[in-house]
Nucleic acid binder design. Structure first.
Length: 116
DNA sequence: CCGATGACAAGCA
DNA sequence: ATGCTTGCCATCG
């Protein structure tokens, strides 16, 4: 329908995004696109990232560090107060990070559609 | 109002 | 693997 996102859908997307992120298992990670698809808005991967940046997901209790781009790259490091805090959180869960990218991405990736 | 930018993604050369 | 292009939407100067 709408080429633009309706405010009602935006609310729906926001709710779904946070709910899905909260379900990401420890030691696993997913991508913006995967979350967008699971939320029912396949083309709003960019919006997902934007929403994560808006709210302070950490104080909201959301494991935002488990959300990376489709290639397993930690594109959110800057928002995590940098200093490799995002990496630290991931490695503390057993996820190997090399050069800002998750190793064994195919194995670590958690698809909310399939595994949910 | 318009162009650039950004926690993105998929396709193609 | 690298780099460019297009699609999407909100923010900013």
């Amino acid at each position: 329908m709408a080429g633009r996102i309706e405010s009602e859908e935006k609310e729906q997307l926001r709710t779904a995004v946070y709910a899905i992120v909260a379900l990401i298992p420890l030691g696993r990670a997913t991508s913006y696109g995967a979350i967008a698809r699971a939320a029912g808005f396949p083309q709003y991967s960019r919006m997902v990232g934007r929403m994560m940046a808006w709210c302070d997901s950490r104080s909201a209790g959301l494991p935002a560090h488990r959300v990376v781009n489709s290639q397993g790259v930690l594109t959110a490091r800057a928002v995590f107060g940098n200093k490799g805090e995002m990496e630290r959180l991931l490695e503390a869960e057993g996820i190997e990070v090399r050069s800002g990218r998750i190793r064994q991405w195919k194995r670590v990736f958690w698809d909310p559609q399939i595994e949910l």
